[in-house]
Nucleic acid binder design. Structure first.
Lengths: 154, 154
DNA sequence: TAGCTGACCATACCGATCTGAAGTCAGTCA
DNA sequence: TGACTGACTTCAGATCGGTATGGTCAGCTA
């Protein structure tokens, strides 16, 4: 049940993949619990600081720090807004980079639902056709693939 | 660009989702850099302790501890083996739970390749038909979905 | 029997992550 | 003018993740 390797990956011997491995890069950028919980709430519609605080259960300090780093990494942007009779504030909006992390975040949920009985179940469906949704690896011919049908080239 | 919410999620107000949120559960179980790097190497074919050490660049202590926790969580199993003239040892094999995390791990790589220019590029292809592979959210009718086309029910 | 090797464990330590509580600051409202 | 609010920032402390170093232990080989 393992992938096939090609290119430089195929004959690297036992050299470690360095800091530039894209999986490692992503974990450094967004691989904390707080980052993932904030992304979850962004997908669920939160945009404002205290919504993020209330709905993740993180502290204000953690929320402020992590939102800042998510803006630096480029998955969120700060957008100014002003309600009548209020001063100017900022909302945090998902960027294209942020929405591109959706399969990862919901992939985690899918995994827990299948393999972690203690986890609460959530289901994903297509709001148009109502059909159930899965996070999958798929080739452009539409085949759903398991690990051992993949070739990884670097 | 946000999902639609249904069920208990729709009218939770600003209550935090607890520890049982499946995204949270997954992050607690496998949400460390060391866990993800070890899974990466498992997908790439590593099974033995020192292969994991050499190919992730993690220390022996970190590797030993994290392999243990991955076995406890159920994504790896210890399988005894014995080479001629050697004593009995253990290999670490992916379980069904472990291979089910593949879309998450390669989803991270896909994200870095699209949005983190400093990351090394890897490409995934179907070893049968050779076509490129993507990690996507797809409904059973075959539609590829963005966040705002999803309904999340809890 | 002694030595070697692979697979760990123990210890000490550093830095990042997170918490809880308190403080700051801009701007609006009474 | 003073109180209030939303959005932070600061600080002290706990916990976790990771490194470096140095054991330990089983069992095979000489």
């Amino acid at each position: 049940m393992t992938a096939h390797l090609a290119g430089r990956l195929a004959d690297r011997g036992s050299e470690p993949l360095g800091d530039r491995c894209p999986i490692n890069v992503a974990m450094q950028a967004v691989g904390t619990r707080s980052a993932v919980l904030l992304l979850r709430e962004a997908y669920y519609g939160a945009t404002r600081f205290d919504d993020f605080v209330d709905r993740t259960g993180l502290t204000e300090a953690t929320t402020a720090g992590r939102l800042k780093s998510l803006v630096e990494v480029g998955v969120l942007t700060k957008v100014p807004y002003q309600e009548p009779g209020q001063r100017r504030r900022f909302e945090y909006h998902l960027t294209a980079s942020g929405t591109d992390l959706m399969p990862v975040v919901f992939g985690l949920a899918q995994w827990s639902n299948r393999h972690q009985p203690a986890a609460q179940t959530i289901t994903l469906s297509h709001d148009d056709c109502g059909k159930p949704v899965e996070i999958v690896a798929e080739c452009t011919d539409g085949h759903h693939l398991a690990v051992d049908q993949l070739t990884v080239t670097a």
